[in-house]
Design a binder for these strands. Structure first.
Lengths: 343, 343
DNA sequence: CTGAAAGCGCTTACAG
DNA sequence: CTGAAAGCGCTTACAG
């Protein structure tokens, strides 16, 4: 139990003593009500309970336990089409365990400051959803043994910090294998930037599938853009206007696939009849595109759920079996892919 | 300052006494270090500070002040295309004021339970982003004077609880006026359900614009669906296949506009040449549609920011001038609207 | 069912 | 700069 002394925040200074006076009972009795002991008369208990509420007394273990039932989820920013799904997974999984989630970004507070906030709040730990973690933040996490889980980091983190991602390489490979299976032999890719671990893995999955099918890699039909619409639109136009245009395009994200769709529309190419488009992500927009996009589904919500489970288990002193967990992707087929046109 | 007694959570029970022993100094000295007094030798201070960190001692005012710098944001669910933007607005505005945001949903905890959590945490207040607030929750909020702000409620709330929304009626009216200005005279609407305050306001904005232009209201080209893609696709097909098809469609949300876009594609209608499509929301997907959608922009992020500002000001005892604030929408013109075909 | 009294952990004015 | 001692707010074993 907490006792309030003469600190700066003495809102509760001598509060139980005042309540005892007001109620005309002894301090002992008030204390017993606070501690929910049974040896207090019903009327006395009621009167004291009322005064406790009225005076705004917060049982310290309520506050303590409330605080220790919090985790912090830090994002680089709260934008992008899949961030919400990750948030949902974290909040849902935490909710099942009666844990609150403090959501924040690194725009106003550095990771270091978030680590301090975690200690100050008495929170159970941090889920970090940013691309890059600085060396000294990593060192601090390991040294102070702060419970931390990284979600889908751009670069490989320290082996001492558990991280969770998806099987980018095999997901991309599967997607391209599907296009090959439909009969496509000229398959372009609008890839992400190579400095991103996920982007590189998807590109290599694409190359692996082509190689296995005995098809050469042609840089002329591979673009490398940010995971966004505008650049993918430009890259799509360039690729589709090229000398030997592809019959299918594999995009490394939904935003890029939508850019390719717009490129096809601008060039008067019908999807999927004249051009098959396969996407990666399967965020909400994939199903709402025109036509609805076939895509490699990333289990964003499950990513958040698993991160929460691992974090809380680490916080309880049970480290995960493996420092790195990769969740499987899933191929979702919709209307944007079909066999290539004949001839 | 807090003193730890023999409660259930006696993690800190006698902690300073132990540290004093370990450091070989008196309890008084340790206490002075905790309170950052100056009359402690540099070496002693350093040794004690190290032990405090090592033992995981949390200065109670850190915890207290950390808790009182929290607000809670409760959503019906964390899905839908604009929820993230509202979250971002709340988290950003809170971050500027150094306030943490606990994010949750009503799926595991009722609003009543969230109100209790707010008291237990000592949080400053609640932002509630759900469509409907039950009578007794409203009563409780007013009676216990809990700082609460409602964001964009489906139904009109109690005048005692501040709420923030957007100018749905005039936004819709402006959108239709724009279509009229382009020369359209046969304008359909895929509206939301009438039980939603926002949906009803948008439908009435549409009707007002038509009336002002001297154009009769024709139920044959007005659909009423949920704010989603599939139903809007069906409604769009029905309206576009009708006897006197429209040259323009105004959709009450981005998801509905995307459904209409797909309906047009299925019927071989080119947008905007053969059919103009105007949307409402302007979430991320609007700019990524094919073609990019003209839309009435809802200031979702600003909605969250404003809710946070109002909440924190209410929490400090300064109620807003008006219990109801409506933020203005903005017309964003892209490639999905143009003049109707001739003849 | 109630409260006087002893005790706990921490804080602080004060002596050295 | 340090600590012995008095004190604070609360808790609890125990007497009635």
């Amino acid at each position: 139990m907490t006792v309030q002394g003469k600190g700066q925040l003495d809102a509760q200074y001598g509060l139980l003593t005042s309540i005892a006076q007001e109620a005309g009972v002894s301090l002992s009795t008030v204390s017993k009500v606070v501690h929910r002991r049974r040896d207090v008369g019903a009327k006395t208990r009621t009167r004291v309970e009322e005064l406790l509420v009225q005076y705004g007394y917060v049982r310290s273990w309520d506050r303590e336990s409330a605080a220790s039932r919090q985790i912090i989820a830090v994002f680089r920013d709260l934008s992008g089409p899949y961030t919400l799904e990750v948030v949902r997974g974290i909040v849902d999984a935490a909710g099942e365990l009666d844990v609150d989630v403090v959501t924040g970004t690194t725009s106003r507070r550095s990771i270091g400051q978030w680590l301090e906030e975690c200690v100050a709040l008495g929170a159970a730990g941090l889920i970090i959803v940013i691309s890059m973690l600085a060396e000294d933040d990593q060192r601090r996490i390991v040294e102070q043994r702060l419970p931390v889980v990284l979600v889908d980091p751009l670069s490989a983190p320290s082996a001492d910090i558990p991280s969770i991602g998806v099987t980018n390489w095999s997901g991309a490979r599967e997607a391209v294998q599907h296009l090959l299976g439909l009969g496509h032999t000229r398959i372009a890719m609008v890839a992400g930037r190579s400095h991103s671990l996920a982007g590189a893995a998807r590109l290599h999955g694409y190359r692996a599938a082509l190689e296995e099918a005995g098809i050469g890699y042609d840089p002329a039909i591979v673009g490398s853009t940010d995971f966004d619409y505008d650049e993918a639109l430009a890259a799509g136009l360039r690729i589709l206007r090229g000398e030997r245009p592809p019959t299918a395009v594999f995009a490394a994200s939904d935003a890029q696939a939508l850019g390719v769709l717009e490129a096809a529309r601008q060039l008067g190419l019908r999807v999927p009849d004249e051009l098959a488009v396969m996407s990666f992500d399967d965020t909400l927009v994939a199903a709402m595109a025109s036509p609805p996009l076939s895509a490699v589904r990333q289990p964003f919500e499950e990513l958040g759920r698993e991160a929460t489970r691992v974090l809380l288990s680490v916080a309880e002193g049970r480290p995960p079996a493996s420092p790195r967990i990769e969740l499987a992707t899933e191929l979702v087929l919709r209307a944007s892919t079909s066999a290539p046109p004949r001839g």
